[in-house]
Design a protein around this nucleic acid. Structure first.
Lengths: 231, 231
DNA sequence: AATGATAAAATTGTCGACAATACTTTGAGC
DNA sequence: GCTCAAAGTATTGTCGACAATTTTATCATT
């Protein structure tokens, strides 16, 4: 599927498969955030040796999905609001820059491809029930393509390889299906226009605003949840 | 020393020590860039088992200092100019943002501390022979403190934990002691001022220009080297 | 009862050996 | 002489066992 990590091909080694499996489990919350990871237990569960499991754990650590302490063990990261805001700051900086670079480096073909994708999303959105789809897959697809369009391996690696799993984790666990669908779509459209005009400065500006808006939206939601739970 | 990774304490496990040792060896070029890493050979050299070595290799991979392919093995990264420019793009984005956040989040004490450091550097620079010192340690110290001042764990982790080893590697292997010492110092000073004024927008702008200037300087140098080798 | 030291259990770190995969060398066929 | 196939060699991936460390449980002391 389109959301898979473009950094790696197909999983070949068993550690790869276990990594993929655990990745989904953590992102979806089947392995609870903040919970301790018992190597003997998980190794038995996946029917592999501890060496192989530890290899998988190392990769999860690279995605910032687990944290390890020497001689103590691994824990799944906590999903705190502070940490989410920190991630948004990093995204604002990196995706903004990726967008600028995309305006400079994307091929004409890639831009055409992207416009086609947005048209698809527009259609799906017309059939109202597509909103949920757009929220999840569509939005991520858009951001992925911009990042890949930067043609900057470092950017791609950090954003697609590491950070996006965390972003997805927060989306799923905090249940973020915000009412920003149509608005976000407009923003996406304008970003593409800027890229199409090869206007890097504007593209960066728009992407940064797009992300800040999304972040503010989350803050608002969280504030609402807080007042609700008070009542 | 000040340049050590603020992310981790002291190395406790043997894998930690081997990681540190290999980190320095790679950064300094004692293990050549682009060279293949033989697990049996290195394990024998460090007098450890392959498991422990592989643990160290995993951490080096986290710093983007080596790359692994399944069933093939590890290589030290190549030091290409393209890759260096890519890193500068990431730095511009992330350190710019870190600087903005530092302006918002640094404590007054931290700012005082930083000004004191700059004064130290100014003195060292007066004693002309301190220039070389300033280039290496001083410059990195400055950038480190700004990054830490952001109080953003994600930023700190990516920049100090991963990217800076690469930056150091390029500095040493490309032999970058540029004639930007006094100029870079002025720029550092103005950045501190912006942070001190709590002007996040200006602080980000200045840091980005500072990094872009440094990048241009490198490009110029490389162009010069190219014409020299032609003659 | 609470605190602190000590012993037991469990977990992580490290090791050496085997299995699976990739690379090299050899030789056969054209 | 060159190309391709096959066997052999070397390297990486995986496994189970042991050592070192941490955590838990036990018990004596105040």
């Amino acid at each position: 599927m389109a959301l898979d990590n473009p950094t790696r091909e197909t999983p070949v080694t068993t550690a790869d498969k276990v990594f993929d499996s655990m990745l989904h489990a953590i992102v979806e919350g089947k392995i609870a955030a903040g919970s301790k990871i018992s190597e003997p237990e998980l190794a038995k569960q996946y029917e592999i040796s501890r060496s192989t499991l530890r290899e998988a754990l190392n990769r999860l650590e690279k995605c910032h999905l687990i944290e390890r302490k020497a001689n103590v063990g691994s824990r799944v990261v906590e999903c705190s609001i502070e940490s989410l805001l920190e991630i948004y700051v990093v995204r604002e900086a990196l995706e903004g820059m990726a967008c600028r670079e995309a305006a400079l480096n994307m091929t004409d073909d890639e831009i055409v491809d992207m416009k086609a994708m947005l048209d698809e999303h527009a259609k799906a959105q017309d059939l109202q029930d597509g909103v949920a789809y757009y929220q999840e897959e569509g939005d991520l697809d858009f951001h992925y393509k911009v990042i890949l369009g930067s043609h900057n391996k470092q950017l791609i690696n950090i954003l697609c390889g590491q950070l996006y799993h965390l972003v997805r984790m927060y989306r799923l666990q905090f249940g973020m299906h915000s009412p920003r669908a149509t608005r976000a779509f407009d923003e996406h459209y304008r970003i593409i226009e800027a890229i199409s005009d090869r206007d890097g400065e504007l593209a960066e500006l728009l992407m940064r605003r797009h992300i800040v808006a999304s972040c503010k939206n989350i803050k608002k939601k969280i504030a609402m949840q807080a007042t609700e739970s008070q009542a």
